[in-house]
């Protein structure tokens, strides 16, 4: 039996892309924040989604309409932006805002612990260049992916890069440690890595909490 496949119908799998459902115009749509949706929205609403001042939790009406329209078009809807707006009541606008926020959160990767280049603003062109050059995606493939998917590919790419850097660092540290020069502190392979491993999160224990609060308690006892 030929089972219906989402991929065969041209729709990406929800578990891969992330997103959120939204009932609109008598149908249930799956809203995804792909790069195409985000760029379409920017063009239509004339906003900069990458601006530090942009706040997705308090969007303007124009942004809600543009983002909803772009996400619906991406899901196969044929309505124009004004037709989408005409179908939104005040209550519907509130529901649309919630659905868009859910779709946004579900389509975005977790924030990096350490930014790649501190102080350097991130642009769409940077994202596109990384996807095409480093990840080997075509522009069309990148446009149809959510930042969540590209984030997953980026994590695998970084893992491979770190593994290669570690192996090279292993050779370099061996040469440095056993070379003719006297080494006071032995080099580690990580010393030669451009992208060092992230330090694992240390769990918060009772001892750690006590070490933080005891000096405060001692100070307060002394002061009172």
């Amino acid at each position: 039996m030929d089972l219906p496949s989402r991929a065969r119908r041209g729709l990406p799998y929800r578990s891969l892309t992330g997103g959120a459902p939204f009932a609109f115009a008598g149908r249930r749509w799956w809203l995804r924040m792909t790069y195409r949706v985000l760029l379409d929205c920017e063009e239509m609403a004339d906003v900069d989604l990458l601006s530090p001042s942009f706040d997705v939790t308090r969007p303007s009406a124009r942004l809600v309409r543009a983002l909803l329209w772009a996400a619906l078009i991406s899901a196969g809807c044929k309505l124009s932006e004004r037709q989408v707006g005409a179908k939104l009541s005040l209550r519907g606008a509130s529901r649309a805002h919630t659905a868009l926020l859910n779709a946004w959160l579900a389509s975005m990767p977790k924030a990096a612990k350490k930014p790649d280049a501190e102080g350097k603003p991130h642009t769409w062109r940077d994202s596109w260049a990384f996807a095409v050059e480093s990840l080997g995606l075509t522009t069309e493939q990148w446009l149809d992916m959510t930042p969540l998917q590209v984030g997953a590919l980026r994590a695998v790419y970084m893992e491979r890069l770190q593994r290669e850097e570690y192996l090279v660092g292993l050779i370099a540290s061996t040469v440095a440690n056993f070379g003719p020069r006297v080494v006071h502190k032995p080099f580690k392979p990580e010393s030669f890595m451009i992208h060092p491993f992230e330090a694992p999160d240390t769990p918060v224990t009772g001892e750690k909490l006590l070490s933080v609060f005891m000096p405060i308690k001692a100070y307060l006892e002394k002061a009172l």
Partner: peptide, 23 residues
């Protein structure tokens, strides 16, 4: 009366974010 398109046009005309103000 509420019309989302009119609200969008008013936002553009006045330069104000009216939906967050309503919310």
């Amino acid at each position: 009366d509420f019309d989302f398109n009119v609200l969008c046009d008013a936002e553009a005309e006045l330069g104000l974010d009216l939906l967050p103000a309503i919310m």
